[in-house]
């Protein structure tokens, strides 16, 4: 069970003078149950890549395979694919439209042709998964706070029971607490259900804290595809492509330059704290 991109190329406006080669020979394997971060500067091809994952756009050349089947084969059921690979776009709360929260979340499963009972069970489960309290279920989605709206929108996708959940900048514009709440909730969901999560983010700190694998896009190609520690080791190269490492990485580098014997590969506050305490403790002995 996996999603494979095999030599995927995508060209916007191929037969015009303004052709843009947006994806260049992308080869990726996305196995079950991984928490993946997808990073890259604006215009690096992240969103184009993401839209290939559920067949919203078709590669100019190359193939996309879901569980071993070519998703662009003539007899392939794309509707089913889209329930299996759930995309949550940027500012998903703009897509809320129903009279109350519960009905909005029911929209997806209802369109899958499920029975009313199954639809409602799924909607209920999905709203619980994103941690929304029962008291909000029959409120208009437009009366909720930014963070709550966004959770309702994510629940709408979860109610389709996807195997892969793609979140395109789910925390943009949220306050720090709202940001942590959503990402904690997603991490918990991943733990409990074993769902694959692909997090598109501009926050290196968030990516470092949550994911186990980072894919870095630059100019339509995959620049790095590795564990966060390995990727952030290349912080100078990341800066050159419009990205950065988490602030912690820079702190550790500066401490090393000053002669404190810390390992430079800490990427989260907790790791950095342990590493600094260890380094200071070592001197104490």
């Amino acid at each position: 069970m996996s999603l494979i991109l095999d030599h995927v190329n995508y060209i916007y406006g191929g037969d015009t003078a303004l052709a843009v080669h947006a994806l260049k020979d992308i080869n990726l394997v996305i196995p079950d149950g991984q928490f993946i971060g997808l990073i890259g500067h604006t215009g690096s091809g992240k969103s184009t890549l993401v839209q290939h994952l559920n067949g919203l756009i078709k590669p100019t050349s190359g193939g996309v395979y879901f569980n071993g089947e070519d998703i662009h084969a003539e007899d392939y059921d794309k509707k089913k694919l889209r329930s299996k690979v759930g995309l949550v776009f940027q500012y998903p709360e703009h897509q809320l439209f129903e009279i109350d929260v519960f009905t909005d979340v029911c929209f997806g499963p209802k369109n899958l042709g499920l029975s009313r009972k199954e639809t409602e069970l799924r909607a209920y489960a999905a709203l619980k998964q994103v941690g929304l309290e029962d008291e909000y279920f029959y409120q208009s989605p437009f009366d909720l706070s930014g963070g709550q709206k966004r959770r309702v929108a994510i629940a709408g996708v979860l109610a389709m029971k996807p195997e892969i959940l793609v979140l395109d900048e789910p925390t943009a514009g949220l306050d720090p607490k709202g940001r942590d709440e959503i990402l904690d909730q997603v991490a918990k969901l991943k733990e409990e259900t074993g769902i694959t999560v692909i997090l598109v983010s501009h926050s290196m700190e968030d990516v470092a804290k949550y994911v186990e694998r980072i894919i870095v896009m630059n100019k339509g190609s995959v620049l790095y595809d590795d564990a966060p520690k390995e990727v952030f080791r290349h912080y100078r190269e990341l800066e050159q492509v419009g990205l950065a490492a988490p602030q912690v990485t820079y702190i550790m580098e500066a401490l090393r330059a000053k002669g404190l014997p810390v390992a430079a590969d800490a990427t989260t506050i907790e790791e950095a704290k342990q590493e600094i305490l260890r380094a200071l403790g070592k001197e104490r002995r």
Binding site: D175, P176, K177, G178, E205, P246, Q247, V248, I251, I269, E270, A272, K273, I276, L277, L280
Partner: peptide, 23 residues
């Protein structure tokens, strides 16, 4: 700040955590 749903810069948070550990 955390009570007010906010945060501090990472470097400030790290210093705060180290303080709590007795540095």
């Amino acid at each position: 700040l955390k009570e007010l749903r906010l945060d501090v810069p990472q470097v400030t948070l790290l210093a705060h955590e180290l303080q709590k550990s007795g540095i």
